[in-house]
């Protein structure tokens, strides 16, 4: 059975598990849906006060916010196994996974997912749809395609950061706040266009943790600020980030098998 079908099987079983606690599931999902509005409210308040941000209109920024939100939620849902990887190491579950002749990444993805994030996902989509409906210049299939690409690419990069965070578990059980800075912090920073920050931020989030490749650069193209093809390619290039992330994780696994801790 190929990897893709196995992943589908994992997803259906995880969903089945989640449905064993139906009430809890829907309440948590609804909670996520409501709470996430605060994230947009902060953007709205900003525009209430200033009218515009470095030349960006409210709907343009909300489009970015929605895309970041949706991407992050996808990563939190499907990358949950890496987000909570510490438990897997501590309970010895990782040993069980290593004893199976299957790709370790596939198994960690399949170990845990959090479908209650559907609440946030819908909220993110809702904001994006609202923003698009106020931006007629986006009503072309190509532009909407790039928007979808932004979300997928962003989700992959957030997942990559979760993988890097998980790798830390092999060496330390403390000091995981650093990871939160990069995930939650990254999400918070990327929801505005990088024009409002100082230059080094853009460099860091393009070259090191490439959130800007997923969101900022293609947004320039979407809103007609740049015609460069690089802006459309950026989300794809950002995916390269996953290669070192996975390699480092593999190193972590090797360290684990030589120390057993």
């Amino acid at each position: 059975m190929n990897a893709f079908r196995l992943l589908r099987k994992y997803i259906s079983m995880l969903f089945q598990s989640a449905m064993e606690y139906r009430a809890s599931f829907w309440l948590t999902a609804a909670g996520h849906f409501i709470v996430t509005f605060t994230s947009c409210i902060s953007v709205l308040l900003m525009f209430e006060r200033f009218g515009q941000l470095e030349g960006w209109t409210m709907w343009e920024v909300l489009l970015c916010t929605g895309a970041v939100q949706t991407a992050f939620t996808l990563a939190e849902c499907f990358g949950r196994g890496f987000d909570t990887f510490r438990q897997l190491v501590r309970t010895g579950g990782l040993d069980t996974l290593l004893l199976r002749p299957r790709n370790i990444f596939l198994q960690i993805f399949g170990w845990r997912m959090d479908f209650t994030r559907i609440g946030r996902f819908l909220q993110g989509c809702f904001v994006m749809v609202l923003a698009v409906s106020h931006l007629p210049s986006l009503w072309f299939p190509a532009k909407l395609g790039v928007l979808a690409l932004m979300v997928l690419s962003g989700a992959a990069i957030f997942t990559g950061v979760f993988i890097l965070g998980a790798t830390l578990c092999f060496w330390t059980v403390e000091g995981l706040e650093v990871v939160n800075i990069l995930t939650y912090g990254g999400q918070e920073i990327s929801k505005y266009p990088f024009d409002i920050y100082k230059k080094p931020y853009l460099v860091f989030f393009t070259g090191i943790i490439p959130y800007a490749c997923s969101f900022y650069w293609p947004l320039l193209w979407l809103t007609g600020r740049s015609g460069s093809a690089w802006c459309i390619l950026a989300p794809v290039l950002g995916l390269l980030f996953l290669i070192p992330a996975c390699c480092i994780f593999k190193l972590g696994v090797r360290h684990y098998t030589s120390t057993g801790s």
Binding site: S17, Y21, G92, T96
Partner: peptide
């Protein structure tokens, strides 16, 4: 492999 104190089965299915 069976570890007496852990499980490889799923709790809720």
């Amino acid at each position: 492999v069976v570890f007496g104190q852990r499980t490889q089965l799923w709790w809720d299915v």
